[in-house]
Design a binder for these strands. Structure first.
Lengths: 212, 212
DNA sequence: GCGTAACCCTACGCACGAGTAGGTATGCTC
DNA sequence: GAGCATACCTACTCGTGCGTAGGGTTACGC
């Protein structure tokens, strides 16, 4: 009895992407633990054993999501911020690319930023990616500083870079919650906060705590 | 057969605090879902039904943690940053109080910042608290701006405040991972990034995207 | 000293969800 | 058109962990 199959058979590569799309969507809304494999499978329009066959266990599936979205993001940034540009131009292009990514893949961003941070097994991997970003920003600042003939303790540099990355992430979060906001405009605003402060530092202006 | 009880009977108020301490500790390490009521009870040196009797279900327990740590934090900040001080002084004291809180209650901070963000039922409450903070910072900036005879669109103000709060949270996170770092020094570094940038904005200096 | 209330326990029921066993249909190759 | 690999399913097992039933013991008022 050859009934017409309700939905087509598709090649593995296509189905894998559909599953990853569904997984990113569900993980972003529910978080790792609250998400169920059944829901992901249903959302992908497929049955659960298929997910296990293609992407493995729940943990492996989550790692696959992290990996896809993470490299997607890093490549977007790296592709935009060429290392031979001046610092402000580089920062600007990097920010534009970053906010572009967040705007285009809000769920992916939510998984990376909101969900993967607290979960023990994955926090490490995420921290590494984040650390790479911080290092890049710190390197940029250091480069700009040396060009001005100045220098700063490595630890201070790292912390400043950390703050800049944090501010950026925070605005990204804001962007993810305001679907009608413009990514490029957000990048401009970020430049206004970050670059003006950083430029001051570059020129040797610093703030000191009051005597008491 | 009156055996000596292994551990003392304690009044409710004391046990509740012990339970909350244990809950904050476990939730901060494992996250809401991965944390088990059994582990929390064991860590508090008590049996599970006691936790249910005093603090209710797992969700209610988590909310209680959020509430205690949240008000603890907000009161620390509000108590330090008196509204009649000049803007930079106020910002400085607020930051000092905030980083002091994070340094003293690292687990509490981790629950608020790392764990409660992604979990659907609690994200709202957290967002409200965060929004209150952003509003305070935005109000401070607005106040300082008006004192200079200048003005800025409300949305821009909100976004800048958002970025500052995000940068601060990010440094707090850094602090939580570096136990030997000094909270006050961290606050100073934050001032260097935030205030210098904000002061520029206050004086009307802005950054514009390049023509192309 | 006796009731009553507060403190505290061991031991379970039960649902939910990760992962699998075992089988069917479709297309591709020779 | 036989054989085989690939795509896909329904229907289960079983562990884990939330929440509770039911009962014991210490303190405190009177």
């Amino acid at each position: 009895m050859s009934t017409v199959p309700a939905f087509k058979r598709l090649p593995r590569a296509v189905r894998e992407q559909q599953m990853l799309d569904a997984a990113v969507k569900v993980f972003s809304r529910r978080g790792f633990h609250a998400a169920s494999m059944d829901e992901i499978a249903e959302d992908a329009g497929i049955s659960k054993p298929m997910v296990y066959a293609y992407l493995g266990t729940k943990e492996e599936l989550f790692v696959a999501c992290l990996h896809r979205e993470g490299t997607r993001m890093m490549q977007a940034i790296a592709g935009a911020a060429a290392p031979d540009l001046p610092a402000d131009e580089r920062l600007w292009r990097g920010l534009k690319a970053f906010f572009g990514f967040v705007g285009a893949y809000r769920d992916g961003w939510a998984v990376l930023y909101r969900q993967a941070r607290g979960e023990q097994p994955f926090a490490g991997e995420l921290a590494t990616m984040r650390a790479r970003l911080v290092e890049v920003v710190a390197g940029m600042l250091d480069h700009a500083l040396r060009a001005e003939g100045r220098e700063i303790a490595a630890l201070d540099l790292e912390v400043v870079a950390y703050a800049l990355v944090g501010a950026t992430e925070s605005l990204a979060d804001w962007l993810a919650d305001h679907p009608d906001a413009d990514p490029e405009k957000t990048a401009t605003r970020m430049m206004n906060v970050a670059w003006l402060g950083a430029a001051q530092l570059l020129h040797g202006v610093t703030w000191c705590p009051p005597a008491d």
